[in-house]
């Protein structure tokens, strides 16, 4: 026992020493009226390893390593309720200037589905940073070559075509498909949607259990290259750039006037100070423009999509309207 203790104490001493040496004193740079006075907490309202967690960890990494923000930024995971637990947690920091969180369309969808008492308008939108898009894929040997082919068949015989996604009805994978299908004139109440929460939707597509896979653009690239699936359409406004990606037709160019952005940005708690908002806007712009973050964006296949606080707010209001109407039509809104 004694020996054990001795080893532990030595180990701890080393740990403490190394930990202390990395603590730098915050330096002052005269870039604005407000500066963080202590470490900033960045909440990822999900567990480790997901999209929110990755975005949060990558952003904080660039913030600190590129010296954009000198203060320490710690990522805190608050998983649960598809985000609801994390939002309730951040809402508790009313007026704080040192608490941020990463958000994307679920902050509009989850409250609309009646699963969170807090929605986007309870928080302070700071800046949007990236955009990602949805893709609709079918097997390479499927009879459809365009979204219109697919939607024609869906209008005639909705029972024969099943769509699979990772999230439940009323959330992203479902809504992005419904939004495009609706614009093409499909009766959205007849769409056969299957949820595969274990993330094996692609398997179900490849083995022929389902006909269509509604997912993110990045998830389809390798399979398209290998010739196992084809992407009938993506939800972006314009064609994307990059190898393979540039070959994916948008819904708009196929004459279906609809798009869906999987945006990702950062929010603060309710009632954040104006000066702090201005500070973060500026810092997120620097982040978005930095080479390091650009490299990360390319790696994950994300698009750049910067919006400042005011633009972001207007964008969110519009999204809320559109999606709210769609959910009402499906009878899912609450």
């Amino acid at each position: 026992m004694k020996k054990c203790l001795a080893i532990i104490s030595v180990a701890m001493l080393i740990v403490i020493l190394t930990a202390c040496s990395s603590d730098d004193a915050p330096s002052n740079n005269a870039s604005g009226d407000w500066e963080p006075e202590k470490a900033i907490e960045m909440v990822a309202p999900a567990g480790a390893g997901g999209g929110w967690d990755t975005t949060a960890r990558m952003a904080t990494k660039v913030f600190n390593e590129a010296g954009i923000i000198e203060e320490d930024i710690g990522v805190v995971n608050k998983p649960g309720g598809g985000g609801a637990v994390g939002w309730a947690y951040v809402a508790g920091f009313d007026g704080s200037n040192h608490n941020l969180f990463v958000a994307s369309p679920p902050i509009i969808l989850v409250p609309l589905n009646g699963q969170s008492e807090y929605g986007y308008d309870d928080f302070t939108p700071l800046a949007n940073v990236i955009a990602d898009y949805g893709a609709f894929a079918v097997r390479a040997d499927a009879p459809w070559d365009s979204l219109n082919d697919l939607f024609e068949d869906m209008k005639e015989d909705p029972e024969s075509i099943a769509v699979v996604g990772t999230s439940s009805p009323g959330s992203m994978d479902h809504i992005q498909f419904v939004q495009i299908a609706k614009a093409a004139g499909v009766d959205v109440t007849k769409i056969k949607y299957v949820t595969d929460p274990d993330g094996v939707g692609l398997t179900q597509l490849l083995n022929g259990s389902v006909e269509v896979f509604s997912t993110g653009v990045a998830e389809t690239v390798e399979q398209v290259k290998a010739g196992t699936i084809k992407v009938l359409g993506i939800t972006a406004e314009e064609r994307l750039t990059g190898e393979t990606l540039k070959d994916f037709p948008t819904a708009i160019e196929q004459g279906i006037d609809a798009s869906f952005v999987n945006w990702r940005g950062f929010f603060g708690p309710p009632n954040m100070d104006e000066a702090a908002i201005a500070y973060y806007e500026k810092k997120f712009k620097e982040l978005s423009d930095s080479e390091e973050f650009g490299a990360i964006r390319d790696q994950y296949g994300w698009d750049e999509m910067y919006m400042d606080s005011a633009e972001y707010k207007a964008f969110l209001d519009e999204q809320y309207e559109t999606i709210g109407a769609l959910l009402d039509e499906l009878g899912l809104g609450q």
Binding site: G81, Q115, S167, S168, P169, V194, T195
Partner: peptide, 8 residues
């Protein structure tokens, strides 16, 4: 939440 329907 039930994944198939979104029902709590």
């Amino acid at each position: 939440i039930d994944p198939q329907t979104g029902t709590q």
